[in-house]
């Protein structure tokens, strides 16, 4: 009830955030947005009235119009970044950890992106092990919690690189920077659901999947997230 009410009490804020998110995503995809195109592509909220929302954003100096195209201002930039970050973290949580179907994930992520507090966002991010990519393969803007100094890995999900030799875990997420690497790992059997065991960390990381033994670069091991298993 409470959450619902606060959601309803800020429709304008939600619409603002939707636009900021859309601008970030469009820039990432390299397709500049005009007000007209924004109304077509935006994935939430009412079908019209976006020019009004844009006007408010321009007034608040979060967005500016340059040659008919919308762009984020210096003050709009960090706002958009936080929204995108919350959305994509939510996607990882719902789709890859809780294994909800993509439609549900999308809807939930669209809700959650507007209500997560900074503290909760950091907690989700840490819980997930600071994932670099969302399920669509787009990068998740890192937050303060992602910097190495403040990293505290919780026990539920951790990176392959954080296991102790001899430990095993079930793969939850594989998120390498290069997409081809994902296929290569999948072909070798490293994909969500697979059981991985860490053989050794030095001089190079060596893991086993079934009867296959693989040596990996540290960076690859950083990109494999798993649920550690208790016992042998």
């Amino acid at each position: 009830m409470n959450g619902k009410r606060s959601f309803d009490s800020r429709p304008a804020a939600i619409a603002h955030e939707e636009v900021l998110e859309e601008l970030w995503t469009a820039r990432e995809g390299g397709t500049p947005l005009t007000v007209a195109r924004l109304a077509e592509t935006i994935h939430a909220g009412p079908g019209e009235g976006w020019s009004e929302v844009v006007r408010e954003l321009v007034e608040r100096r979060l967005v500016r119009l340059a040659n008919g195209e919308l762009e984020l201002t210096e003050t709009g930039e960090p706002e958009a970044r936080q929204i995108v970050r919350r959305h994509r973290l939510a996607e990882v949580l719902f789709h890859q950890v809780l294994e909800l179907p993509m439609e549900v994930t999308e809807a939930e992520a669209c809700n959650l992106e507007h209500v997560l507090t900074p503290q909760a966002t950091a907690a989700v991010c840490s819980f997930l092990g600071h994932p670099p990519l969302c399920p669509h393969g787009r990068s998740i803007p890192p937050g303060e919690c992602c910097s190495a100094l403040s990293r505290r890995v919780p026990s539920l999900i951790c990176r392959l690189a954080d296991l102790v030799p001899g430990e095993r875990g079930r793969v939850v997420l594989v998120a390498p920077r290069q997409r081809e690497r994902l296929h290569q790992l999948a072909d070798l059997g490293i994909m969500p659901g697979a059981m991985l065991g860490l053989r050794q960390r030095k001089p190079s990381i060596v893991v086993e999947v079934d009867q296959t033994v693989l040596a990996l670069e540290d960076e690859i091991a950083q990109a494999i997230y798993l649920q550690p298993m208790v016992g042998p």
């Binding site: 996607e91 789709h95 179907p101 993509m102 994930t105 999308e106 399920p135 669509h136 393969g137 997409r179 994902l182 296929h183 999948a186 072909d187 059997g189 994909m191 969500p192 659901g193 697979a194």
Partner: peptide, 16 residues
């Protein structure tokens, strides 16, 4: 877009 993941991953998963 419909899968929410790369097609290669979905296909590889089904095979596995």
């Amino acid at each position: 877009r419909a899968l929410g993941t790369s097609a290669a991953t979905a296909i590889a998963r089904a095979r596995q």
